[in-house]
Simulated scan of single mutants.
Amino acid sequence: MFYAKDLTPAAGSYTMDEPTSKYCIQVLRHELGDEVLMTDGRGGRYTTTITDDNRKKCIVQVKQYELMPPVKAPVRIAISFTKNTSRIEWFLEKATEIGMQMIIPLISQRTEKEKFRADRFESILVSAMLQSQQYYLPELTAPASFESLVQQPPSQQLFIAHCLPEQKRHLWQGMQPGKDSLLLIGPEGDFTPEEISLALAKGFQPVSLGDNRLRTETAGVVGCTMMNAVNVTAAGN
């Protein structure tokens, strides 16, 4: 499957960009007349046929368009990016494969300030979406401050995972399936007590991700997996 964010249902044909054309024709060895699937990352599934197998400007004819059903209850995660870029890139890949709908880079008091590499991060999301055979590209928002996000959270069901020794429900137990959900994951060193207090005052539920102390990116993957599993399990009942 190939990604084309500017492909629309009204298109009769489409010309792939050079990197995609090269991968399609030179690497995967597709040729004239082959059928290939494409997606616009917005749920569109395009069945196409190659009409020009030029490795720099491959042209396909759109034969069929189908809008794949979106998830009923979006799951979102706001996570403090780490200074080690490779670790956060690993998280972005896995969160996409798991099925997150929105990823929010969270700037808290203890967040290591690093350059936000939007183009690089988007290419990781696209690659992971295609590899996992999905048709919706997660939304990677601009970095958001902790205070602004907890003041106006984008979900109905709100959670904050932190390490302070207080009574917390396990995320698996605290989450109700079928509701938009947002989970906050803090930086190395955790959220400050003041940030935790603010989040709780704004309706966030304190949750645990297990007994072990997890790295930021590992906590993110565990949280994504749990939230997705709660909704999938409920949908299967």
Results as ranks from 00 to 15, higher is better:
I79E: 04
Y135E: 02
G41C: 05
S132G: 03
M129I: 05
K22M: 00
L183V: 08
K56W: 04
V71D: 12
G33D: 06
T192N: 07
T192S: 14
Q152L: 04
I88C: 10
P165R: 04
S197A: 13
M100G: 04
D40I: 05
F116W: 15
R87T: 09
T48E: 10
G33S: 07
K57Q: 08
P187L: 05
L106N: 10
P19G: 05
H162M: 01
D190P: 06
I196A: 13
E31L: 01
K22I: 00
L140C: 08
P153V: 04
A10V: 07
E188I: 05
T233H: 11
R110H: 15
I103K: 03
P19Q: 01
H170G: 10
F81M: 11
G210N: 04
T15E: 14
H162W: 04
E166K: 03
L130I: 14
L184Q: 10
K113Q: 15
V222K: 02
I196R: 13
K63D: 12
R169C: 05
D52M: 01
Q131R: 08
C24T: 10
T141C: 04
V71A: 09
I103R: 02
G223R: 05
Q131T: 09
G203P: 12
E97K: 08
D180A: 14
D34H: 15
D211I: 01
F204P: 14
L214W: 09
P143L: 02
P206W: 10
G220H: 11
Q151T: 14
L92Q: 09
F146L: 01
F159C: 06
R76H: 09
Y46Q: 02
G41I: 02
L214G: 11
D119V: 06
A4G: 12
S127K: 09
T225H: 05
A4K: 08
N228A: 10
G236Y: 13
S208E: 12
E66I: 06
H30T: 06
W90N: 07
Q205D: 10
S21H: 07
A128D: 06
A95S: 11
F191H: 14
K115I: 01
T82A: 15
T51I: 15
T218C: 11
Q101Y: 04
A142F: 01
A235H: 11
L209D: 10
Q64R: 11
G210F: 03
A142Y: 01
R55D: 13
R169W: 06
R45P: 00
A11H: 12
E194C: 03
A118W: 13
S197H: 10
M102V: 08
A235E: 13
L198N: 03
H30F: 15
L209F: 13
T85V: 11
D6A: 02
G44I: 01
H170S: 15
C163A: 14
P193A: 10
E166W: 00
L209E: 12
S155P: 03
N84C: 00
V222R: 01
E122N: 13
S108K: 00
S148W: 02
P206R: 11
C58I: 04
P105N: 13
Q173W: 06
D6G: 00
L125W: 12
P9A: 09
